[in-house]
Nucleic acid binder design. Structure first.
Lengths: 222, 222
DNA sequence: GTGTGTTTTTAATTATTTTTACTAAATTCT
DNA sequence: AGAATTTAGTAAAAATAATTAAAAACACAC
């Protein structure tokens, strides 16, 4: 029985959502405001949160952001506005889905179930290519069963490549995605990190392929 | 000392798992095939089962299903396939968690501990790693049989780490989870507590590993 | 209120990582 | 083939982060 946290200040709306969630066989917890929601979240194992944006004290976006610090449970945002910008803001803060009021509770339940299904099939705890295996939760990398130590940037680079294999990335793209858009430095920096990474990967360094004038890509089957 | 049943036909894999489970303070029983597993399960009180899917005679799914008829012990499935369908099938037959080969034995141990904690009727009255033992009920910590005194924050930190081993936590996450999301202070606070904790743990301080730019994690087998 | 122990902040030291600058090697183009 | 461009390798410099230790702030019991 998954635990659903419903964060909504309107009593009416709360009741409707609870009713449908119960029909779906879920256990419901409710919070009337953001503070309350975070309290509950901190002390109870929740499987999904349905979060209203318009709330007194602390709005939905802030709750979403703060919730993400302590949990990675799926979040569905609710709002009266169908504003595109709000939607994007929601996703930016880590929401997984979005519903605009007035909405169909049936569809809310369907979305809830879909997210629960997707998340409960526990998300990739390993990433593999050739003899390389990454354990994201532990931030560790194994090479043919042997743990190797990477610096943070090396790890980020490898992780990025392995989550985006077979795609070419220019140095600029890599800088943007891994270093951040505000990185001001030299594009040669990428080369250096590619080099040290290849070195540490030994014979498995072959997965990182140079495409002259284009950039680099990670090939799984190499 | 919880009893773990390891159902795995490959001798090598068996040995690796046994080694790590022993480090985690568990007692191990092994079965080379499904029939064997069910026999053991029927006649001995087991606390958790680690179950390989690919086995001769009777596959893991069938074992899982039949095991559920006689016991509701937590089951972790092991498989070479990272197939989504297999995962769902596993859950359908009553598995509690899933690990895809190749996997990190450390993470397997972490998952094992997590499940044991969640399922055991009287939740963990001791937590161990290396020479460190915590008695949560009494709030006491022993180092190689000798009681040591920790301040409240130190205790909380150690307890958090030992209940969430092998996972990295950023300073922010630690502040959120241990200090509370409303803590306004400096992230260096974490460093200081890590320092005093390591100091008091002496040589066992090695379990707390620093990952530069990422945070800290607790490694059981270190 | 004072004193003790705990927690947090600050600042200096130490260690590590990242970046840059330079040279060598490889690749492409004419 | 040879010049020009691009990438790889090396090592040193610069930037950043972690660890200490010590002082300040805080909390609680007496």
């Amino acid at each position: 029985m998954p635990n659903i946290l419903i964060v909504e200040d309107e009593k009416n709306m709360q009741d409707i959502i609870i009713e449908y969630m119960k029909r779906g066989g879920h256990t419901c917890f409710t919070a009337d405001d953001g503070i309350d929601a975070l309290m509950i979240l901190k002390n109870n194992p929740m499987d999904l949160m349905i979060l209203d944006i318009m709330m007194p004290h602390l709005d939905g976006f802030s709750v979403c952001k703060m919730a993400r610090e302590i949990s990675n449970l799926p979040i569905i945002m609710l709002t009266a506005k169908s504003d595109e910008e709000d939607k994007l803001k929601g996703y930016k803060y880590g929401a997984d889905d979005y519903m605009t009021k007035p909405f169909s509770p049936k569809i809310l339940l369907a979305k809830t179930n879909a997210l629960l299904r997707r998340f409960s099939a526990n998300p990739a705890d390993t990433l593999s290519a050739g003899k390389i295996t990454i354990f994201p939760i532990a931030h560790t990398v194994f090479l043919d069963g042997q743990e190797i130590t990477l610096t943070h940037k090396e790890y980020e680079l490898l992780f990025f490549f392995m989550t985006n294999p077979e795609q070419i990335f220019s140095r600029e793209q890599l800088l943007n995605r891994i270093w951040g858009y505000d990185f001001e430095g030299n594009t040669r920096t990428v080369d250096t990190h590619i080099k040290t990474l290849r070195q540490k990967l030994g014979s498995e360094g072959k997965h990182i392929v140079t495409l002259i004038r284009s950039g680099y890509k990670f090939e799984v089957a190499k």
